Simulated scan of single mutants.
Amino acid sequence: MIERPDVVLAAIPLLAVSGLALRLVIALTGVGTGLLAAPLAMVGYLAALALVIGELLVGPVAERSAEESS
């Protein structure tokens, strides 16, 4: 059975690569080529970072530390 930590660990590299994949799709199709100037690779990295920070602030780690401090 897949648990939450497994899903989070699998999602981090997928999100990091998603910006590069989006840029590749735009380049191959030729649709919206003006978007190629946008830093799409950074979007994936920022999404992965947001996932990690979100898990630390509101995920199980934060819940456990809140229980220990009270």
Rank of each mutant, 00 (worst) to 15 (best):
A50V: 01
L51A: 06
A47W: 00
S18Y: 03
A37T: 07
L24G: 11
A16M: 13
A38V: 14
I2F: 08
M42L: 15
R23T: 10
V7G: 02
L35V: 11
A62V: 09
L40C: 11
L51W: 01
E55F: 03
A11D: 08
L22V: 12
M42V: 13
S69P: 02
A10W: 12
I12Y: 02
I12C: 04
A21D: 11
G19N: 09
V17W: 06
A48V: 08
L9V: 09
L49Q: 00
V8K: 00
S70E: 11
G59F: 06
E3N: 12
P5L: 03
V25H: 01
G59Y: 04
S69T: 07
L40A: 08
Y45L: 14
L28W: 06
Y45F: 13
T33M: 13
A11N: 07
Y45D: 01
L24D: 13
V61H: 11
V43H: 00
G30W: 00
A47E: 01
A16G: 14
L20V: 15
P60Y: 08
E67V: 15
G44T: 03
S65D: 09
P60Q: 14
I26R: 10
R23N: 07
A38K: 11
V25P: 02
A47H: 01
I2T: 14
P39V: 00
G34P: 00
V31A: 10
L9D: 06
D6I: 10
S70R: 11
L46T: 12
A48E: 05
Y45G: 07
L49R: 05
I12E: 01
D6F: 08
T33D: 15
L15D: 04
P39E: 14
I53G: 06
A10L: 15
L57N: 14
Y45H: 08
E68D: 13
M1T: 09
A21H: 03
L46W: 07
D6Y: 01
P39R: 14
T29E: 04
V52W: 04
G30A: 07
E55M: 10
A27R: 12
T29R: 08
A11C: 13
L15K: 12
V8D: 00
L35S: 09
L15Y: 07
V52S: 04
E3F: 13
L24A: 15
G44S: 04
P13H: 06
M1K: 08
I2D: 06
A50E: 00
E68W: 12
A21L: 12
A47Q: 01
Y45P: 00
V31N: 11
G34A: 10
G34Q: 08
A66Q: 06
D6C: 00
I26V: 15
A38E: 04
L56H: 03
V17S: 10
M1C: 09
L57P: 02
L24F: 11
E63F: 02
V17G: 10
V8N: 00
L51H: 01
P60R: 08
G54E: 08
